[in-house]
């Protein structure tokens, strides 16, 4: 039996741990919710594309000795480019006006990406070790590694940057216009296909940033996306599809739930908590906590 006093003592560290992981979830989910909000498609390959970004960070570090944080300037634009091309030349042509087709094509993409990765990188998990990997910070009793704290700050900063982009640039305005009413946007002269591809690209750029912040304290394997894709969907569904604030709050919430679930139910069964929330939210409040009912 687990002592309740012991749980009490572990509660605060678990909370801090959950919040730092949750910020990363929020960033990943932000990309997903942007894509959903604008294109109304569920990007099933989101987890696999995160895995691609993680491997990019790994390879840059191992082969060229580029620090994961410095890799931001390469990986973020790289993912952006991949996203633009994928949406424009693979996903869009398959749509034929049916959401189900997009779902199937992104599922196909994730199968291709994942299996190519396990062919070329083999299936073992890999980590990187930097000078600051084991640097620890004490936050009122909760000892947490420096990279995790940086990840927390970096993820929140990225969310903020995205919010500014959406609010006060022409591109952001165009994206919001297309999200609201694609036909109308087309009529006033917005290149809708371009905006679709840009939105998808920005969504993947979020993954690039998440990968750079994640790898110093995490690992990468061809299957690493699996865990993240369902968690990202849970965050998005919890926060409301297409809602930015929702993603941020949802991400932090899911991080905490996962961390507490692991503490109370054990590592293996603890993962269930997130999925149960996911299913329950989908059933009872599909619009999420912050979304509007359609």
């Amino acid at each position: 039996m687990i002592d309740s006093a012991l749980i009490g003592a572990a509660l605060w560290p678990a909370l801090v741990n959950g919040l730092t992981m949750g910020a990363i979830y929020a960033l990943i989910a932000l990309g997903l919710t942007l894509i959903y909000g604008v294109l109304h498609i569920i990007n099933f390959a989101h987890g696999s594309l995160l895995m691609v970004a993680l491997y990019a960070v790994l390879v840059l570090f191992e082969r060229l000795g580029i620090d994961p944080y410095a890799a931001l300037v390469v990986v973020v634009p790289g993912m952006f480019g991949i996203g633009y091309v994928l949406q424009r030349f693979v996903i869009n042509p398959a749509r034929h006006g049916r959401d189900e087709n997009t779902l199937l094509v992104t599922l196909g993409l994730s199968i291709v990406i994942e299996n190519l990765a396990s062919h070329f990188f083999k299936t073992d998990t890999r980590q990187i070790e930097t000078a600051y990997t084991f640097m620890m910070v004490d936050l009122a009793g909760a000892v947490i590694s420096m990279p995790r704290l940086l990840a927390f700050a970096g993820a929140l900063a990225s969310c903020l940057a995205l919010a500014v982009l959406m609010r006060s640039t022409d591109l952001g305005r165009a994206i919001r216009a297309v999200a609201r009413e694609a036909q109308g946007a087309r009529v006033v002269g917005i290149d809708v296909d371009h905006v679709f591809a840009m939105s998808f690209a920005i969504g993947l750029a979020c993954l690039g940033a998440a990968a750079c912040f994640l790898l110093p304290t995490y690992y990468v394997s061809p299957q690493v996306g699996h865990g993240f894709v369902l968690i990202a969907f849970t965050v998005v569904v919890l926060g409301g599809m297409g809602s930015f604030t929702g993603s941020l709050v949802g991400g932090l919430l899911v991080g905490v739930i996962e961390s507490l679930g692991g503490l109370l139910l054990g590592e293996s069964l603890g993962q269930i908590g997130v999925f149960v929330i996911f299913i329950v939210i989908l059933l009872f409040r599909p619009a999420g906590l912050f979304g509007q009912r359609t």
């Binding site: 498609i41 569920i42 959401d99 189900e100 779902l103 369902l230 969907f233 569904v237 293996s268 069964l269 993962q271 269930i272 999925f275 149960v276 996911f278 299913i279 989908l282 059933l283 009872f284 599909p286």
Partner: peptide
Amino acid sequence: YGLRGSYFALVTLAMAEVFRII
């Protein structure tokens, strides 16, 4: 609860994951 399309696909996926973990 009126789940359709993508939402139904996601719920079934999550169900399979739940059973795998169990």
